[in-house]
Amino acid sequence: MLKIFTTQLSGIFNRIQEGEASSIEDGARLLAQAVISDHSVYVYGKNELEGILKEALYSSEPFPSVKPLPQDEESWPAFQAADKVLMFCADSADEKELKMAEKLNEKGIGLVVASPSGKEGAPIASFADVHIDSKLKMPLLPDEDGTRFGFPSLMVGLYIYHALSFTLKEILQEYQ
Rank of each mutant, 00 (worst) to 15 (best):
S10M: 01
G11Q: 12
I12T: 02
F13R: 05
F13L: 03
F13G: 00
F13V: 10
N14S: 11
Q17G: 05
G19E: 03
E20I: 03
A21N: 00
A21C: 09
S22Q: 08
S23Q: 14
I24P: 00
I24H: 00
I24D: 03
G27Y: 03
G27N: 04
A28H: 04
L31N: 05
L31R: 00
L31Y: 00
A32H: 03
A32P: 06
A32W: 04
A34L: 04
I36Q: 07
S37H: 13
S37I: 09
S37Y: 07
H39S: 11
H39D: 13
S40I: 11
S40M: 14
Y42L: 02
G45F: 04
N47W: 09
E48W: 09
L49S: 08
I52M: 01
A56Q: 09
L57S: 10
L57E: 13
L57H: 06
Y58D: 10
Y58G: 08
S59Q: 01
S59C: 10
S59G: 14
P62S: 13
P62V: 10
F63K: 00
S65H: 12
V66M: 08
K67F: 08
K67G: 02
L69M: 12
P70E: 15
P70V: 13
Q71S: 15
D72F: 10
D72C: 08
E73T: 07
E73W: 02
E74G: 12
F79W: 05
Q80C: 12
D83W: 01
D83V: 15
K84M: 09
V85S: 04
L86V: 03
F88Y: 07
F88I: 07
C89I: 09
C89A: 13
D91Q: 12
A93W: 05
D94G: 08
D94C: 12
D94T: 13
D94F: 06
E97K: 13
E97V: 10
L98R: 01
K99V: 10
